[in-house]
Design a binder for these strands. Structure first.
Length: 271
DNA sequence: TCTATTTGACCACT
DNA sequence: AGTGGTCAAATAGA
């Protein structure tokens, strides 16, 4: 599958939806409320998908082949130093909320680093043999910047990782809309995206199929992916559900890492 | 009591 | 030998 064409198509849809929104804003609001809602969902879907591409494709992934010399021991402190998993980094103003449940298992002072590095593993490491881990390190004070390095993909069945929650923003009676993913297309995946399925450990990465289904979901997951800012001070609290966004314009702030220009630049550069 | 975090120890890697 | 990744006992909190 040509990822470039997917991106270009998504960009077209995104920009069309944006224009549609502008046009609708100029009309009688009461008449087009339904259309507005639909347009919001369309635009949000494009935004979400572009966000995925932005963070997954445009951020180069270092693939680290492991040292087979690593051995597993039973004694304390013995471990496989490097796993044969992919790794990738993400730098953000806040420790990224990625929709997975992590358990901190270590903290180290790193040489020449101002801040200590925190080590996390998937909560389902043992019950579901999920090998995903991540390291979070603060790299800057003002504004706070955190570098998160992910190792391996989730193989656990984590609810938040397998479904995208896209409920309507301004219509309380609306049923939630889930954006489901399957493994139809080969594409990279990252844990920092709360809405990307990672249930497969195969080399075929999950990719959004833009299949939208309506389901009722627990309210605690409402607007999960639209959380504008995760808790900064205590990363261990990153599973908290942040308040829902009430305004359309908050969409942009919800995707601090999503840069439409980055995607456009990437498309041009690759020509 | 159960679960998550902290932290010192241990060991692989360079 | 120094550094960094992981383990697991101790501790904290719900």
């Amino acid at each position: 599958m040509d990822q470039r064409k997917v991106l270009e198509e998504l960009l077209r849809g995104y920009e069309s939806a944006t224009q549609l929104r502008v046009v609708m804003n100029e009309k009688d609001e009461s008449e087009i409320r339904t259309l507005q809602s639909l347009a919001k969902n369309v635009l949000r879907s494009f935004t979400n998908t572009l966000f995925l591409f932005d963070s997954h494709l445009l951020s180069p992934t270092k693939s680290q082949d492991s040292q087979e010399s690593c051995k597993t021991f039973n004694r304390r402190g013995c471990y496989k130093r490097k796993r044969s998993k992919e790794e990738w980094e993400k730098v953000s103003e806040a420790p990224s909320v990625d929709g997975h449940h992590w358990r901190k298992y270590g903290q180290k002072e790193i040489l020449k680093a101002k801040y200590s590095r925190n080590y996390y593993r998937c909560t389902h490491k043992y019950d579901q043999n999920c090998q995903a881990t991540k390291q979070v390190q603060r790299i800057q004070e003002n504004p706070p910047l955190y570098k998160t390095t992910y190792f391996g993909h989730h193989t656990c069945n984590d609810l938040l990782s397998s479904e995208i929650i896209l409920d309507s923003i301004d219509s309380p009676s609306d049923t939630s809309i889930l954006l489901s993913f399957n493994n139809s297309f080969p594409a990279p995946t990252k844990q920092e995206c709360p809405f990307l399925s990672s249930s497969s450990s195969s080399s075929i990465y999950p990719s959004p199929s833009l299949m939208i289904t309506e389901e009722t979901i627990p309210s605690c997951y409402d607007d999960y992916m639209l959380s504008p800012q995760p808790t900064l001070d205590d990363y261990s609290m990153h599973n908290n559900v942040t308040p829902p966004l009430d305004h359309w314009d908050d969409m942009s702030s919800a995707f601090s890492d999503f840069d439409i220009d980055d995607i456009k630049r990437w498309l041009n550069l690759d020509d």
